[in-house]
Simulated scan of single mutants.
Amino acid sequence: MELYVDLQIASENEQSLPELAQIETWVNAAIMAASDDIREEAELTVRIVDAAESQELNSQYREKDRPTNVLSFPFQNPPGITLPLLGDLIICKSVVEKEAIEQNKRLISHWAHMLIHGTLHLLGYDHIDEEEAETMERIETSLMIELGYNDPYLSEKE
């Protein structure tokens, strides 16, 4: 499968960001594990932002006036038109970093989890009800372990 990731860095501090190749690996793993259809290609935008932009978008689209780790905006194909676009992921650098510290996780692991989590949202997965949450968490955990990371729902450091 051909994967096209448009990486946009809109954060003032570019230190400790994952490389494009890492992002592509995580996104590709989520697509391959979660897609029922076999895609020839997929395209998405990953935008890494600061807290102000995350808070603005979270407030506008989710009516939650605070920054959040990841926002997913799935692309809706117009009727009769098929495009490989999955949508956009907006990831707040400072929230991801803060959560990694609070949850005793390695930063790279938390980045991987957020990219996988957001991509699953673009593919239609959700965690609103308990059954959907269990399915989504099972996929995330399986992928993280396959990629050499720990279970994202457990602390990594003691």
Rank of each mutant, 00 (worst) to 15 (best):
residue 126 D to C: 03
residue 37 D to H: 06
residue 124 G to I: 04
residue 21 A to G: 04
residue 92 C to Q: 09
residue 79 P to C: 04
residue 116 I to D: 05
residue 37 D to N: 10
residue 107 L to C: 06
residue 57 L to R: 15
residue 34 A to Y: 09
residue 92 C to F: 10
residue 51 A to L: 10
residue 110 H to P: 00
residue 114 M to S: 15
residue 38 I to L: 14
residue 99 E to T: 06
residue 55 Q to F: 00
residue 56 E to L: 11
residue 66 R to P: 00
residue 114 M to Q: 15
residue 34 A to C: 13
residue 54 S to R: 04
residue 24 E to S: 14
residue 132 E to P: 00
residue 93 K to G: 01
residue 133 A to L: 12
residue 122 L to H: 07
residue 45 T to F: 01
residue 81 I to F: 12
residue 83 L to V: 07
residue 21 A to E: 15
residue 12 E to N: 11
residue 85 L to I: 10
residue 36 D to H: 12
residue 60 Q to G: 00
residue 60 Q to P: 00
residue 118 G to R: 04
residue 5 V to A: 12
residue 2 E to T: 05
residue 128 I to M: 07
residue 95 V to E: 14
residue 45 T to W: 02
residue 8 Q to I: 15
residue 15 Q to K: 15
residue 5 V to E: 11
residue 90 I to N: 04
residue 83 L to K: 02
residue 75 F to W: 15
residue 137 E to W: 00
residue 53 E to C: 03
residue 12 E to R: 05
residue 129 D to P: 00
residue 128 I to G: 02
residue 101 I to F: 07
residue 63 E to T: 07
residue 110 H to K: 14
residue 27 V to M: 11
residue 141 T to I: 01
residue 47 R to Y: 01
residue 74 P to W: 08
residue 95 V to A: 09
residue 145 I to S: 03
residue 3 L to S: 06
residue 105 K to G: 01
residue 39 R to H: 15
residue 148 G to L: 05
residue 66 R to L: 13
residue 113 H to I: 00
residue 56 E to S: 08
residue 48 I to Q: 06
residue 39 R to P: 01
residue 134 E to Q: 13
residue 139 I to M: 11
residue 51 A to H: 07
residue 67 P to D: 13
residue 87 G to C: 07
residue 36 D to E: 14
residue 148 G to H: 12
residue 152 P to E: 09
residue 103 Q to L: 14
residue 120 L to H: 08
residue 100 A to Y: 06
residue 142 S to M: 12
residue 29 A to F: 02
residue 144 M to I: 03
residue 46 V to Y: 02
residue 26 W to L: 06
residue 17 L to M: 11
residue 98 K to S: 12
residue 79 P to N: 11
residue 79 P to Q: 13
residue 28 N to K: 14
residue 100 A to W: 05
residue 124 G to K: 10
residue 98 K to T: 10
residue 65 D to A: 09
residue 109 S to M: 02
residue 9 I to Y: 08
residue 114 M to I: 05
residue 49 V to K: 07
residue 71 L to K: 04
residue 140 E to I: 00
residue 130 E to M: 02
residue 150 N to Y: 01
residue 91 I to P: 03
residue 116 I to E: 05
residue 22 Q to I: 00
residue 67 P to W: 12
residue 140 E to R: 02
residue 109 S to P: 03
residue 77 N to I: 01
residue 40 E to D: 14
residue 131 E to N: 11
residue 14 E to D: 08
residue 93 K to R: 15
residue 140 E to K: 01
residue 79 P to R: 12
